[in-house]
Design a protein around this nucleic acid. Structure first.
Lengths: 158, 158
DNA sequence: GTTGAAAGTCTTTGCCT
DNA sequence: AGGCAAAGACTTTCAAC
């Protein structure tokens, strides 16, 4: 996968929170040329360090009033691979993990209102074969949401 | 907050998964001029519909091998406001919700390895006053992670 | 929402360290 | 290998319509 040095990390710290910042400004902040930024961003995309880009949309502006996590219990863990395609069909479902602990899976979804949430939970989720129980954790408040930390490394080592 | 019409929605669908796409291409896909795209994106940023932009970074490339959700139980729900600033100090913690259900809070974090995870759970989290119990849900596999759905609306109504 | 022109930015190529 | 400079191509911005 190739090493990610401190210049890479510096670039990532800047752009991971602002995809539309011009490479000229990134270059100035890093003290290198624009071309260097361009080459490194391109290389990191090829290496799979950077997997994509996007805008963050406020769910409320689209009419989604609630964000909910649901703990899903399966009849058998091995049903995981069969259940995922079914879950994937639910557009409101944005994240889907296979987990250790109390639940077999943890999923995240957005709903327009309580009726919509109930409809997803009862009519859609509970009807999927293999799912024997769900536990609903409604997010009443998002205290914070931020990017993964990007620590600098000791470049002499490694 | 102003209405978001179908052209806005079309734009959002395109750019929310690709922040670096040129507005010229967006304009072509939408069948309008470049300036229209620019005006609308700017307006949506001012309105708070678009709250930011960024690159997605592969956690593994930074040395994070595990993604973990932790259900946190508080002594009293009202301690929430006091606990959040403490949690915010943990850089590996990327998301923090106040929730209904089994837990008082649900948090998401990244760890380099099992030792690192244990250290965050035992040394850091459990030491915060007000936290009486935690339940760890390690993500063994991320089946999918995608953007919130952006439905088109019936523009005659509303 | 559109057009057109001016200002600024990105991307490529070849060169240098 | 990796960083740099310059040129042409492309975008963004700002008018007036």
């Amino acid at each position: 996968m190739g090493r990610i040095d401190n210049l890479d990390r510096h670039i990532l710290r800047i752009i991971c929170g602002n995809a539309r910042m011009s490479f000229k400004d990134v270059a100035e902040q890093c003290g290198v040329s624009r071309a260097a930024i361009h080459q490194r961003v391109q290389r990191m995309q090829e290496q799979g360090v950077i997997t994509g880009s996007g805008y963050t949309i406020n769910p409320k502006s689209l009419g989604y009033t609630t964000c909910t996590y649901v703990g899903v219990k399966l009849e058998r863990g091995s049903l995981y691979k069969e259940v995922v395609p079914q879950l994937s069909k639910i557009p409101e479902l944005v994240e889907c993990h296979y987990t250790t602990g109390t639940y077999s899976m943890l999923i995240k979804l957005y709903a327009r209102d309580n009726d919509h949430l109930m409809q997803i939970l009862n009519s859609t989720l509970q009807e999927i074969p293999g799912i024997i129980a769900t536990e609903t954790l409604i997010s009443l408040d998002l205290a914070f949401m931020r990017n993964i930390p990007i620590p600098m490394i000791d470049e002499d080592k490694e």
